[in-house]
Design a binder for these strands. Structure first.
Lengths: 184, 184
DNA sequence: GTCTATAGACCGATAGAC
DNA sequence: GTCTATCGGTCTATAGAC
């Protein structure tokens, strides 16, 4: 892994752990093993490096979601597999946590990938829910868009509650509750 | 409002807007109109002041929730009223946002009120859901604790999605989706 | 490409006069 | 109680040698 790559990966980790405001160039340099001059050679500054890191985290989230959602089985099974997929719930969502970062939300460039990611994910789930409603997996009254939004919210809120409680089990419980309502 | 009070209220606002890491003593002093010496006269330092602010936000959240949940009507109506209560969704949850703050979660004293708040809220909702199940508002298969966890997660995740989208309507949509599943 | 040196501002806090 | 002065350290770069 070359220096540029190590800078991006270290920034990804730090943004995940400490957010944008809590991540300093110095900390990035220490974790990546790159020096001051090296970092500023590869990137103009903290915002540009953060953008590279955020873009990659967003693409990663999307790819992982698609891996579960893009299957061929019943819609219910695919959504269940996605929600129950193994996650380190106590770490939280690398993209969702950025919504709490005022400096990220104030910068249109940094904010766009965050916005796009959740728009895509909600849309993807809404499509699946609509499909499930057509083929009879869900009843006809189900609202695909509202339900998809609620499911994504359960994921994001599940992380919050798991961190608050210091227990990944709380995340599982939130997912169980949501799937219990969806599939009864 | 005396100086001590202004310091606490200013800190509450700043923690809400910018989190613990993003809130400096200097910013607190500017917003409250208190000087350096004044702040350190009333509080030992940033952690102690933050604790006073967090405790108050936690108590406030609890009181506001109880105002909706503690009524006498059908459980479904009370839960619906709580979830749909007027909120500034784009500001997010003043307590939930602290779970993303590594320095808050690393300090047991600062973390306790966050943990307690969500434990209480989940428990309160679980009790109501159990009550609703007994009196026939919900079907017998409903899991009160898992469902309560999912509902609190929808709130917290709804804030995340609303901020990501820059639209409070997304919060409403998540709530609609959750209530749609709960009350169908 | 990477290094060291330097910069001006801010960080969180302490000291001591008033 | 509130003020100003000061502190060592960090923040986010920039400059320029190698």
């Amino acid at each position: 892994m070359d220096t540029r790559e190590r800078l991006i990966e270290s920034t990804r980790e730090l943004l995940w752990e400490r957010g944008y405001v809590g991540t300093s160039p110095k900390a990035i340099q220490e974790r990546s093993g790159a020096g001051q001059g090296s970092m500023y050679h590869h990137f103009q500054g903290k915002p540009e490096l953060a953008l590279a890191a955020i873009d990659r985290s967003a693409a990663d989230l999307r790819a992982r979601a698609e891996a579960e959602l893009g299957g061929t089985g019943p819609v219910t099974a695919r959504i269940g597999a996605y929600l129950r997929r193994e996650r380190d719930a106590l770490k939280g969502c690398p993209v969702g946590r950025l919504t709490q970062d005022p400096d990220v939300m104030a910068d249109p460039g940094l904010r766009r990938p965050v916005e796009q990611t959740f728009a895509w994910l909600t849309d993807r789930l809404a499509g699946l829910l609509a499909e499930g409603r057509e083929n009879g997996e869900f009843d006809a009254g189900l609202d695909p868009v509202a339900t998809a939004t609620a499911l994504v919210a359960v994921l994001q809120g599940g992380y919050v509650l798991a961190r608050a409680a210091g227990s990944a089990a709380v995340y599982e419980r939130a997912v169980d509750g949501a799937l219990g309502l969806l599939t009864r």
